[in-house]
Amino acid sequence: MAKPPRIWVSNAKPARGEIVRVRAQIEHQMESGLRSDEAGRLRPRNIVRKFEARLGQTLLFTWEPGISIAQNPYIEFTFAARDSGELVMVWADEKDPPLEARKTITLS
């Protein structure tokens, strides 16, 4: 998880109630646990198990990927902008500390 998450928001200064579209992608192997290593042993599974998006203190949604989610997981979602606040996104895998990204959303 060396590189920062890549985040795109359709409009960081939306009108109240406007639907904001967000795209987020991180670099992650999403090791399924089905692949063998050089010695023929299965590589231990390590996938992103949980993604969470909040606006300020308010949870928008969670996403729980399984092993069928592609590597370098991509998530696109929308939300209705009801308040200004920090859009906080957190990725948690099975090994490393969680990864976090923030974007300030200001109602115009």
């Binding site: 920062p4 890549r6 985040i7 795109w8 795209r23 987020a24 992608q25 670099e27």
Partner: peptide, 11 residues
Amino acid sequence: QIDMDVRTEDL
């Protein structure tokens, strides 16, 4: 191959 498809200013 690692495609980073989300267009961003930090890139």
